[in-house]
Design a protein around this nucleic acid. Structure first.
Length: 870
RNA sequence: GGAGGCAUAGCUCAGCUGGUUAGAGUACUUGCUUGACAUGCAAGGGGUCACUGGUUCGAUUCCAGUUGUCUCCACCA
């Protein structure tokens, strides 16, 4: 029976069809009740607002490789997919749309109506990214798809919030937080991005009450002056000591403030006097607490100045700054303006400069949670791969501040706290509270929602049905590995670890496999504003998902950023094409219905050679994958497919295949199909398509057994024999091209060798691959006009006297001999070194001895050859 | 201020726990309608593995320092 593949590799013609079939067959859904060992992964949930970008493509490809590998190895493999509601990001998008299309702001609609719009958005775009994931070939269990705001996840959020609150780990307080005046919400420390900006130091006179003098204050944010409640100096600073206890008058404002002493002020920096604005600076806030200073907030939530700013009320903070500075100057209070570059924090979602402000917010107390989260990393329960990211994590966790979790948004999990306007009672509860338990009046729920990362932190167990004790949790929690980029170690990984420990009593995963960023061909971060993003869907459309996956998985070391370029994707596509054509060749020559590996005694040397090489490959790939060396694993397969299987085995087997040899057919079909299995986790579609056309045992390659090392397929001797033949063929080809012998010119070949049997069996190969017309085995060749080709196992002669330039030949042989003698000397030196022989491992010493033997063989050949030339 | 990455062929990058004749892709040179593939085949040129020390029998690999470069964290008004 002849099988066929279409003439050209056309991924579009089969990728969607194959994916649909996998889904229909339910291969992605594990049986919770089976007794296979578990392997589980939760997807880093993409934002519902998002489109699939290269970062996702990389992340998902790496996960799918691990998941498919483990599934083929017989694990009960669960990959939980889903999406994140992405609080701020999504709300911003919907608000933008609202403004653009209807010229409305969210308050025009009101909370409920606005949320309806966001849900509409979610329903419209949430499925888009899921479909894009499917295009990539991800083998997620879609029957368990989750959303951070679905019923189950929301229930987990409430449960966790109440638990933490009852343990005293969640509290509400008036603290200084980062405020985004554009998004009109508080942000956590992690959500602020700092960039260096050119600014100024404004030096301002603060007059001393009852004296003529003044104190010189330098500030980068003069508009916060309205909120100054003191000026501080260092108590040990001799030059400012006399000021302590005096009263200053705020210029233009006229309010009186004291001069206080605090160690926070650094001696010798600036003017030595610092204005203290407890409501608008984190350090000043602490100083204020120490000295019992009043907190005066001078800004509204949108960043405009409030009534404390007097005539500047209502102005934007920067407009107010400008006007204030002009007025100070006019009134003679401005001493000078000094240029100053400093780091300014911006909102990670909208880029607006954040304003530190005191505000009444909800916080998670981090210290008790951080401790065990550090322990599991210190003791190796949770490992980072590559290891260096351990430090990134521990450094952050060791210095973590309390986590501000409330957001003044509408889109998100509403905080389950209820207030009574009558008696002021507050209740935190998993279930809705409508009437006050104390006074019976109506309760209203907290209007704030939770930080979007609060729910993502619960993802590994909220997606498996927690707080219920589900079979999924019992079998698949903790998960096996978390795959993600180093950019969200703080946002997400850290918070999952302490949440898992706190609520499940176990860390949510044992390994964190970290990858880098995908950059453009010039090494720049892909971004919308630069317009340099490469759309993975377009790449899939043009080159196929397998090529994209190959390009992302190959040649990049764990944790390192990688560049994505046209070259890379083309080279990946070429590989797919190569494999496709190799398969076509195999199929064209196959007329068996079942692949059965012949007994060892029936196999030809080249069969044993390729089987032995395949065996080694399986062993190496397994080891690579177990160590998360995905790029190395793929490179090994690539080399085998192209350089070993295609370039040599296919060529070597052509004579037998065209003669209809069944042994050769079985071997080549076996090797191809095992190779496809090794490659399947990386390139799932093409491997399945080819597998299905070959005679095959399993219904699908994705549920077939991943190849293992087979002790019965170790053929060390035959492998070495074949390598000798290949080495000689290569040497002959090289000599011929070097002499300018056209390929069509065939020549008689005489071989002198002590490996007669090996080479005798290889006569057809010399004829087909080395331009030999006939091959003779002789004891010696005396003809001085024959071209001599020397390897460590044979000397070959080709009578091409007319092509030889004897002087050049002599020079070439001499140079080769020189090089050879150099190597011999080097190894002999090594072996003569007592230190080396004694201390180096025996295998290394033995290796050097064997190398020396080979070099000596070559030397013998070269010397004889030179002698013949005279 | 603190932490970390990177520096290997013209370019983009591999190189796992020290021993290789230092690799790949791409580009380049030469020659090929070899009956799977020109998205291909064959043969080649091209590297003082940033620099300086150290450890070792042996260092591209481990350690320290220097230079260049990138990133993260903290944030002194």
């Amino acid at each position: 029976m002849k099988h066929e593949l279409s003439k050209t590799y056309d991924p579009k013609s089969f990728e969607d069809r194959i994916y649909q079939n996998w889904c229909d067959k339910g291969y992605f859904t594990p049986d919770v009740a089976d007794n296979k060992p578990p392997f589980s992964v939760v997807i880093p949930p993409p934002n519902v607002t998002g489109q699939l970008h290269m970062g996702h493509a990389l992340d998902e490809t790496l996960q799918d490789i691990l998941v498919r590998y483990k599934r083929m190895q017989g694990f009960s493999t669960l990959w939980v997919p889903g999406t994140d509601h992405a609080g701020i990001a999504t709300q911003i998008k919907v608000e933008e749309q609202l403004r653009k299309n209807e010229n409305l702001i969210r308050y025009d609609l009101g909370r409920e109506k606005f949320l309806e719009r966001v849900w509409d958005w979610k329903h419209q775009y949430g499925s888009r990214i899921i479909n894009q994931l499917k295009k990539l070939g991800t083998s997620c269990d879609w029957t368990r798809e989750r959303f951070t705001m679905d019923e189950g996840c929301s229930r987990a959020v409430k449960e966790v919030f109440v638990n933490l609150y009852e343990k005293g780990l969640i509290y509400r307080g008036n603290r200084i937080i980062n405020w985004c005046p554009h998004c009109i919400t508080a942000l956590s420390d992690a959500e602020v991005e700092y960039t260096e900006q050119a600014g100024s130091f404004w030096h301002i006179k603060y007059p001393i009450k009852g004296e003529d003098g003044y104190v010189e204050i330098a500030t980068t944010r003069p508009e916060t002056m309205f909120g100054d409640t003191a000026v501080a100096v260092n108590p040990s600073d001799e030059s400012t000591k006399h000021l302590v206890g005096k009263t200053l008058i705020l210029p233009l404002v006229g309010r009186e403030i004291p001069v206080i002493a605090d160690d926070y002020v650094e001696i010798g920096f600036g003017t030595g006097c610092v204005k203290i604005t407890p409501a608008h600076d984190p350090n000043d806030f602490l100083v204020g607490q120490r000295h019992g200073l009043e907190q005066i907030k001078v800004m509204n939530d949108d960043g405009t100045i409030n009534a404390y700013g007097g005539k500047y009320e209502g102005m934007d903070r920067y407009a107010a700054r400008k006007a204030l500075v002009e007025d100070l100057d006019a009134a003679g209070y401005l001493i000078k303006v000094v240029p100053h570059t400093h780091n300014v924090g911006a909102c990670y979602r909208c880029g607006t400069t954040v304003e530190p402000m005191t505000s009444n917010q909800w916080f998670v107390k981090m210290e008790p949670l951080a401790k065990p989260a550090l322990e599991v990393v210190y003791d190796g329960t949770v490992k980072f791969e590559p290891e260096r990211f351990t430090k990134t994590y521990t450094n952050w966790m060791e210095n973590v501040h309390d986590w501000c979790i409330s957001r003044q948004l509408w889109w998100g999990h509403r905080i389950p706290a209820y207030y009574c306007d009558g008696c002021g009672e507050m209740v935190v509860s998993k279930t809705d509270v409508t009437t006050c338990p104390k006074c019976g009046k109506a309760m209203r729920q907290e209007s704030d929602v939770l930080d979007t990362w609060f729910s993502s932190a619960l993802w590994p167990f909220s997606t498996m049905g927690w707080p219920d004790k589900t079979p999924e949790l019992a079998k698949y929690y903790p998960t096996s590995v978390l795959v993600t980029g180093y950019d969200i170690i703080f946002f997400w990984v850290a918070r999952m670890i302490f949440s898992g420990l706190e609520h499940m009593g176990k860390a949510p995963f044992s390994t964190v496999f970290i990858h880098g960023l995908v950059r453009d061909a010039k090494g720049r971060k892909m971004s919308k504003s630069l317009g340099n993003g490469i759309d993975p869907l377009q790449v899939i459309d043009e080159f196929g998902a397998d090529a994209l996956r190959f390009a992302l998985a190959t040649g990049n070391a764990p944790g390192n950023d990688m560049r994505f370029s046209d070259e890379k994707i083309e080279s990946a596509r070429n590989f797919a094409n190569k494999l496709w054509n190799a398969a076509r060749f195999v199929l064209m020559n196959l007329d068996i219905d079942k692949v059965e590996l012949p007994a060892a005694g029936e196999l030809a040397t080249e069969d044993k050679w390729i089987l032995s090489r395949l065996n080694t490959l399986a062993e190496n790939v397994t080891q690579n994958l177990d160590h998360y060396e995905i790029g190395v694993a793929l490179a090994n397969i690539y080399d085998f497919v192209w350089d070993v299987f295609c370039d040599w085995y296919i060529e070597l087997s052509k004579p037998r295949l065209s003669a209809g040899d069944k042994i050769a057919q079985n071997v080549i079909a076996y090797v191809l199909s095992e190779t496809l299995k090794l490659l399947h986790p990386f390139m799932p579609f093409i491997t399945e398509e080819i597998y299905q056309t070959l005679p095959h045992e399993s219904e699908s390659i994705m549920i077939s057994d991943f190849p293992r090392r087979r002790a019965d397929l170790v053929f060390t001797e035959e492998e070495a024999e074949m390598e000798r033949v290949i080495a000689l063929i290569r040497a002959i080809r090289a000599r011929r091209t070097e002499m300018g012998v056209v390929p069509s010119r065939r020549a008689k070949l005489s071989i002198v060798t002590r490996f007669g049997a090996t080479f005798a069996a290889a006569v057809p190969f010399f004829q087909k691959l080395a331009g030999a017309s006939e091959v003779k085995f002789v004891d010696a060749v005396t003809d001085p006009t024959a071209v001599q080709i020397i390897t460590d196992s044979a000397v070959a002669y080709i009578p091409l006297a007319d092509m030889i330039d004897f002087d050049a030949e002599r020079a070439r042989l001499t140079a080769e001999l020189d090089k050879n003698l150099g190597e011999i000397k080097r190894i002999e030196g090594k072996l003569a070194n007592a230190g080396f022989v004694e201390k180096a491992p025996a295998a290394v010493v033995e290796g050097e001895r064997q190398k020396l033997e080979k070099y000596k063989e070559v030397r013998k050949g070269l010397e004889e050859a030179l002698a013949k030339l005279g």
